[in-house]
């Protein structure tokens, strides 16, 4: 990519690859189009390297959101050849031919590759917060196994790729909060000392019923969280239990224990 780098690493691929990058500024009303760039590649290069090369060296007006370049912050979400992926985690050498990079389609466009994901924070505000049992003696004790179940969901880097791929979120925006937020609810519900059950909230307010368990979200998650299997299905089951069985529902509402949870 950069002359200095190549010298230093001795990676003399010298090859260029074609990138088609989506350009649109919704404020000018001119609509969008893909623009072609040829970028020199070096060994191990990721798509984000090419995009930042363009925005730093060729056209600074190319809007792109990124920060860690280590697949840890969840900023650089995009659609690469139509698939929702992190640009910093997608190696160029895993893709043949032209590489097309576009913004996530489920969110309003800010500019070029950047979308407005603020609706996710609004949903987060509505999510019933962690509510620990009262009066437990400090420091708290928890079993490692129990903790592990919730920790799977806490790997989420809020890249919102699962939101992007979900057809329900794409088509019926307001109706269903989306997989990321079910994962969040599950991370709280599975906390060994949490006292709430968010499954009813997920169904009544969150539109969880719209999810028809296609598992597309789970396939794109860069953290390999089993979103559908471990978060969505158990939350659906819990909410079904409590909705159809008023006694369990009542019991759940008033009992602080979680031992009866299906996990």
């Amino acid at each position: 990519m950069k002359a200095e780098n190549k010298k230093e690493e001795g990676a003399k691929t010298g090859r260029t690859r074609k990138f088609k990058v989506y350009r649109e500024d919704p404020t000018d009303g001119k609509g969008g189009e893909y623009q072609e760039f040829d970028v020199q590649v070096e060994e191990g290069m990721v798509v984000l390297d090419a995009i930042t090369y363009i925005s730093q060296r060729v056209d600074p007006t190319l809007a792109v959101r990124w920060n860690c370049k280590a697949a840890r912050c969840g900023s650089c979400s995009a659609e690469i050849n139509g698939v929702p992926r992190l640009m910093c985690k997608t190696r160029v050498d895993t893709i043949d031919g032209t590489i097309t990079v576009g913004p996530m389609r489920a969110f309003p466009l800010v500019k070029d590759l950047v979308t407005d994901v603020s609706s996710n924070y609004e949903i987060e505000k509505l999510m019933p917060e962690f509510k620990p049992k009262e009066g437990i003696s400090s420091p708290w004790r928890m079993n490692e196994m129990d903790v592990g179940r919730s920790q799977e969901f806490r790997k989420c880097i809020e890249c919102f790729l699962c939101q992007d791929v979900c057809h329900v979120v794409r088509d019926h925006h307001a109706a269903y909060i989306g997989p990321r937020h079910v994962v969040k609810a599950a991370s709280l519900d599975m906390h060994p000392l949490d006292t709430l059950d968010r499954s009813e909230w997920l169904t009544a307010d969150g539109g969880l019923g719209y999810c028809n368990v296609t598992k597309c979200c789970q396939d794109v998650c860069p953290e390999h969280i089993k979103i559908t299997d471990n978060a969505i299905i158990p939350e659906k089951e819990r909410s079904a239990d409590s909705l159809y069985d008023p006694i369990i529902s009542l019991f759940r509402r008033f009992s602080k224990g979680k031992a009866d949870r299906k996990q």
Binding site: T52, Q56, P60, L62, A63, V64, V110
Partner: peptide, 12 residues
């Protein structure tokens, strides 16, 4: 060149 919005060059 360009404007202020998400201008990597201006940030630079």
């Amino acid at each position: 060149k360009g404007g202020v919005r998400f201008n990597q060059g201006l940030l630079g």
